[in-house]
Amino acid sequence: MSLTVAVIPAFNEEKRVALAVQDALSACGAVVVVDDCSTDRTNQTAYAAGAYVLRHVINRGQGAALETASDFAVRNLGADIVVHFDADGQMTAADIPYMIEPILKDEADVVLGSRFMGKEVENMPASRRAVHVGARLFTLLMSGIRLTDTHNGFRALSKDSAKKLRISLDRMAHASEILDLIAARRLRVVERPVTIKYTEDTLEKSLKIQGGSIARTIRIVKDLIKKRLIG
């Protein structure tokens, strides 16, 4: 029996993280939450919901939190499959069995969730759609991987690929970095349709934290260029 562990980076998600943990536990053997120096009760809430909780004493961003969580899942819990999951309830754990299926069958090393493969996207704003079209083109040019959806946080990784994909970009550009690494390590990658819910609550949050799609995109591209120049 293989162990699937969901890893959830969380920064000030006390309202939503418990639901995400409980949801993920319904499909995974264990859940690891990395509390990225939250100032609210994210840590306690996630723990009470049944997750392993690790705390970053300084906020290091989503990429860094994911890496910490994967590290813990593989090395300390002996996970066979690591699933990247979201703290804010945008993803649904009902998709996890479909996500890990190709890895269990040894048909893929990495499975990426896609919002644009059949399943319906609920309430995605037009501005965000436009950004995604640009991101797909950018990824095709930079990594040479053709995907229907490039910046979906829903991923499933086999143990070995999780070890090979060491994320070094701390903030949001890790999504592109992961794609680069998949290409560089020649991992087998497939996409699976997933449902992503855009609720008013989460949209408002991402606006507050990141300053909207455009500003966020600029920041991601900046991080990536930096990485290419000096990395």
Partner: peptide, 8 residues
């Protein structure tokens, strides 16, 4: 973080 995980 890895040195002090909270185990459920």
């Amino acid at each position: 973080a890895l040195a002090s995980p909270k185990v459920p």
